[in-house]
Simulated scan of single mutants.
Amino acid sequence: MSQAPEEETRTVRPYAVTGGRVKSASSNLPLEALVEVVPNAGDINRLPPEKRAIMQHASRSYVSVIELSALLHLPIGVVRIIVADLADQNFVRVHSTTAVGARTGQAPTLSLSVLESVLNGISAL
């Protein structure tokens, strides 16, 4: 039994969009990471359709990686790779709630005194 043409397109398309990559150096972005367009990012008309769509959505306001996945109807892994590529090309800036050190396996950069201050502030509420 063969697949319907739409199903084949959905199966092949993400592979084609990422050039066959399943990971990039910085593609392990958190789902809630916010994406914004860098001012004067350059000519987006030369970008592939998926990258242009991300640029258009992120130019209106901050948009999360998971929202982009839903808006573009693409798997989250594909969107992470595309957003990482756009960030590497200085088209977008990614704001993450996760400390960079926590993602790379290094010790977090926050000191104990900063954490204690935050805890005291929350307790005071």
Rank of each mutant, 00 (worst) to 15 (best):
A84T: 02
G121W: 06
H57C: 05
D85H: 09
V83C: 02
G105C: 06
L34I: 10
A107R: 12
E36G: 07
G105R: 11
P14I: 08
K23R: 08
H57A: 06
A87E: 12
P108W: 03
A58G: 03
A16R: 15
V114Y: 13
E67Q: 10
V79A: 05
R60W: 00
P39M: 07
T104H: 05
G121E: 09
S117V: 01
R80T: 06
V83T: 06
A87Q: 11
R93L: 10
N28R: 14
A53K: 11
V38T: 11
S61K: 13
S59G: 09
D88G: 08
T98R: 05
G42Y: 00
R21Y: 11
N45H: 10
Q106R: 11
E50L: 03
S111W: 01
S24W: 15
L125H: 08
G19W: 11
E6R: 15
V17M: 05
T104R: 05
A99L: 15
E8P: 02
R60D: 00
T97N: 13
S2M: 14
P5K: 12
S64C: 05
V94F: 01
I54R: 01
R13F: 10
N28H: 14
I44Y: 10
H57F: 13
V38H: 03
R60Y: 00
P49M: 05
T9M: 11
N28P: 01
I81H: 01
T97E: 07
F91M: 08
A53N: 12
L119Q: 07
V65K: 02
K23W: 06
N120V: 00
L74N: 04
V22S: 11
L119A: 11
R80P: 00
G20R: 00
S111D: 14
S111E: 14
F91D: 03
S61Y: 12
P48L: 08
R10G: 00
K51V: 00
L72M: 05
S61E: 14
R93K: 12
R60A: 12
S69A: 14
A99R: 14
L47R: 08
N28W: 09
A84D: 14
S117Q: 07
A33H: 06
S26Q: 13
L74P: 00
V35W: 01
L31K: 14
Y15M: 13
S113M: 06
R46M: 09
G121L: 08
A53Y: 06
